[in-house]
Design a protein around this nucleic acid. Structure first.
Lengths: 202, 202
DNA sequence: TGTAAATGGGCGAAAATCTGCCGATGGTGC
DNA sequence: GCACCATCGGCAGATTTTCGCCCATTTACA
């Protein structure tokens, strides 16, 4: 892919995966016109290679693809890049598909045909909000699921610890820092990555 | 906590929410026959009251209910009990509904009509996870008071995960790599760092 | 004894994380 | 308005971790 653009980017690169070349090209053109860097793949294997060779910040993928499905691809992608948010789109999605996708940590699920405006809005949201964030509320429930990769389990545990500490201290970050003996800066980063939102009760 | 039946109490209580009384009663009877403690509610408000008065370990709720929907209820429940897993079921769920539910941290989403067997299987999974979490905490924390630094707790958890996986696979490192989806080199490093010694039994 | 598979670990580049410094923001009290 | 406090986040350098490459050792099996 033509990534030889010398003048540097804003650091945000989207991986767009679709087995339909026409749709893929059209969407890519549209997004590029909006100033978003896009890397393309027309199947799961190519997409995984892209993940290796290019620094990808978000993934938008079709659910139904020949050979390897979007779900399988996403599962692999999750292992390689746990922090990269994934959005699916599909025309014929069953409830089970959506559940599976969300369990994999999908950020959103669009229905085909995807309006360019919707896709753009979603992508912009990814760039602004989900960048580097593990969106997974499911993390905290997968604690005992045997098939969940090590890395997720550890992240889920970190999330659990922080949330517990936060809730026992009424959302006081300072108290959490003291109890967990963690650097404030590190705690902030982790909270952002793990999608922990502080909430104060009274 | 307030369980009047002392000898039936294995510590796991399910909150079942459905506005259809007949379905609710039938499901409750079935689950109780399977030895599962069930608390009932036929609307969101009652369900929230139940959350306050009874220690609930898991929630299974209808998505569509008059007045407050299952989603709204779940959002409230999340705030009050962030760690309690929630399962939805619904007959007419749009993709957007499923996405919203999963984002709220739903563990699963069943389609109506729900087969008793499916519901039972789902609930049993919830219960097992619950057990697993409790056990994990006990194992890694019986030495630890609250003041153990975050870093050490996470390391202890990593050690626990690896040791568990090792022991269930009879010390086969290869199987651990597969189960935990962890790079071999990384696993080796971690084992050395955490002082894990592989031992083969027969 | 040969051969293959499994495991452990050194080395080093790449990636991720940690963390101090500093400025921004929002709420509180004077 | 102004000072104060708690919190968030950009930036960047220091530190740690990850992981491919490669080889030694051990174990398994013919």
């Amino acid at each position: 892919m033509s990534n030889d653009n010398p003048d540097m980017d804003d650091g945000f690169t989207l991986l767009l995966v679709d087995d339909d070349h026409d749709v893929l090209a059209a969407n890519a053109r549209f997004l590029r016109l909006q100033g978003i860097q896009v890397v393309l793949a027309d199947n799961a294997d190519t997409a995984l290679q892209r993940l290796e060779s290019v620094r990808v910040d978000a993934i938008v993928t079709d659910l139904c693809m020949p050979e390897r499905s979007g779900l399988e691809f996403a599962a692999e992608a999750r292992i390689r890049r746990p922090l990269v948010p994934i959005v699916f789109f599909s025309g014929l999605a069953s409830v089970a598909d959506v559940v599976a996708a969300m369990r994999l940590g999908a950020v959103d699920f669009l229905e085909k045909p995807v309006e360019p405006q919707d896709m753009l809005a979603t992508v912009l949201t990814l760039r602004d909000r989900y960048d580097g964030v593990i969106n997974n509320q499911r993390l905290s429930f997968d604690l005992a699921d045997e098939s969940v990769p090590f890395r997720y389990r550890v992240l889920a545990y970190e999330k659990l610890l922080i949330e517990q500490s936060l809730s026992t201290h009424d959302g006081q970050v300072g108290a959490v820092i003291e109890q967990l003996q963690i650097n404030r800066r590190t705690l902030n980063d982790k909270m952002r990555r793990l999608g922990i939102v502080r909430q104060i009760h009274d």
